[in-house]
Design a protein around this nucleic acid. Sequence first.
DNA 1: TACCGTGCCGAAAGGGATTTCGGAGTTTTC
DNA 2: GAAAACTCCGAAATCCCTTTCGGCACGGTA
Lengths: 344, 344
Amino acid sequence: MPAARRTAARNATLGDVAKLAGVSIATASKAINGREDVAPGTRDRVVAAAAELAFSPNQLARSLIAGRTGTVGLLTSDLEGRFVIPILMGAEDAFGAGQVNVILCDARGDAIREQHHLKALLNRRVDGIIVVGRQTDPRPSLGEQPVPVVYAYAPSDDPADLSLTPDNVAGGRLAVEHLLGTGRRRIAHISGDPAYAAAQDRTTGVRAALADAGLELVGDVAYNDWSEHWGRDAAAMLLAAHPEIDGIVCGSDQIARGVLDTLRDFDKRVPDDVAVIGYDNWEVLATQSRPELTSIDANLQQLGRAAAMRIFEAIDGADGVDGETGEHRLPVRLVIRGSTIARR
Amino acid sequence: MPAARRTAARNATLGDVAKLAGVSIATASKAINGREDVAPGTRDRVVAAAAELAFSPNQLARSLIAGRTGTVGLLTSDLEGRFVIPILMGAEDAFGAGQVNVILCDARGDAIREQHHLKALLNRRVDGIIVVGRQTDPRPSLGEQPVPVVYAYAPSDDPADLSLTPDNVAGGRLAVEHLLGTGRRRIAHISGDPAYAAAQDRTTGVRAALADAGLELVGDVAYNDWSEHWGRDAAAMLLAAHPEIDGIVCGSDQIARGVLDTLRDFDKRVPDDVAVIGYDNWEVLATQSRPELTSIDANLQQLGRAAAMRIFEAIDGADGVDGETGEHRLPVRLVIRGSTIARR
DNA sequence: TACCGTGCCGAAAGGGATTTCGGAGTTTTC
DNA sequence: GAAAACTCCGAAATCCCTTTCGGCACGGTA
């Protein structure tokens, strides 16, 4: 069978380096790792030998001793990779480039596959596991594990776990405050599946911000699903019932795209007549619409970073000290584009 | 500092199991791994002990002996995760669930970061590396490495490497053949950046299929970039110059979305007046448009699967046998939706 | 009884690196 | 000139598991 190219060169071991430098393995190790008790001349010889053999230490052997691998498992069912990639990047960055590597496992929404992956990750002795949910609803806890587990994006249903989630209430609030700031007063809200905690939380934020300004939502919240189709339909119904609206807060960028479509069909100018704000800041949707979509960004990269840091804090902390638990809501961010403020 | 929950329970080692079962470590190993020369009674005792201690073998130690880790590195700069996630899933699946794990590294288009990640992967003794490009243009080779390297999606610029790419020529051809099959004869082509090999290849396929039917493209190929904006503008120009067209092959789903927008502005019905076909089958775009978008799917999951298999073939093959090289084009697939065939 | 074959089990080596601790060699001190 | 104090270096243990191979005990055969 055909196969891929590679060189035959075996990796040099510390023993090879030691032999070439004419020292013991122990000394070679010390020299390379910058430990003391090595004469400068000896160190130079070892370093030169290591360079000549292109020696790079076997992380497996290292991890075996250290009891730490410098890897974290990322367990997800996010088929799109929309949430998981930024979180992965954040985790990679938590401790300088190349310190931490991420083993990404896609469970595809299958509990059995998830268990398989979990076991594989533990066997590989990952230092911790980040569980990324598909949506912001609570998901089943993995229970007690021999390594720290952090739930990201979707919280665990067990309050004894640590969950890091985006603050959807603040997001809803932020959206409305921005619209108010641009002078809108007659604001409606179109969202997705009301069974999602995310939908409820965002709505809560929306209402709260309006209440603070002495205003109320125009019409009821239009819930259904997170699709563009729904955005189109909902906007049509909304315009029929309340033609006076001047701002629409959408539960997702997809919904917002649909809303924009319908507004164009109704000859409403965006943002002049109606301002539209999305949610998720999914670049491919938000920056390609006309006009481009103002949106709420969940700061997922920061969330991934925080998750990784929590894991290593848990390890470094004294054993047996159970860390922080419960759901922590991380701040979100407003990204302003043309759908709320006209280009000058 | 706060940290995540975990149990204090240290992982049981094979030694613990052996002690509990009252046998030697060697016997415990044999019993657990189903090797011979173990009396049934002994085996049962060991297995029971292992279960009691929730023993799971340390993959690190295993890998150290075996010289194989069962991991592959996925090196990418695909910030979206659009290409890399399906490829990752395919690689995971190449050998049954949980056999292979993938360490995903995002280089973010930075060569230095890529080198860092490469080194980290090699230190972790991955069994092979899959390099996923951002676009289908050739990318710099990593050169000779101690493990097999396969380039996926984007080929390497070194023909001595093995590259697996989607067959863009066949994709262009498939698109046109489908349109011809629905009775279209006046077909135009709007594509992205002409500097991309993908754009050129798709165009080649488009022209070839038309030529086979004794037809020619209506107008020139409209190249620019891969955006919705361009799709909208190009479609407007196209309709102005050639109002008679009845089919448009687009270089990406984003372009197709823009084209659909403009067609609606021009009161052209899709698919009745004009059929539109996209490229990439990016679900979130293709299934949310009105009508839903027929598109060409690059079968990335299969591509990832193939890449992983090549890696392990290269390992299993005799050392020093350089495997297959060059760029291999994998078949693509037509996904039919409402933009080319009216719903019954 | 002496011998051989078979069936089970365990001691030990090995995989690659780190770390401790003792010892050899050199310099300082009285 | 002997004791004390440093420098450097290396043997060996350790991490956890797999695998080889020698050996013990038992039953069967001559």
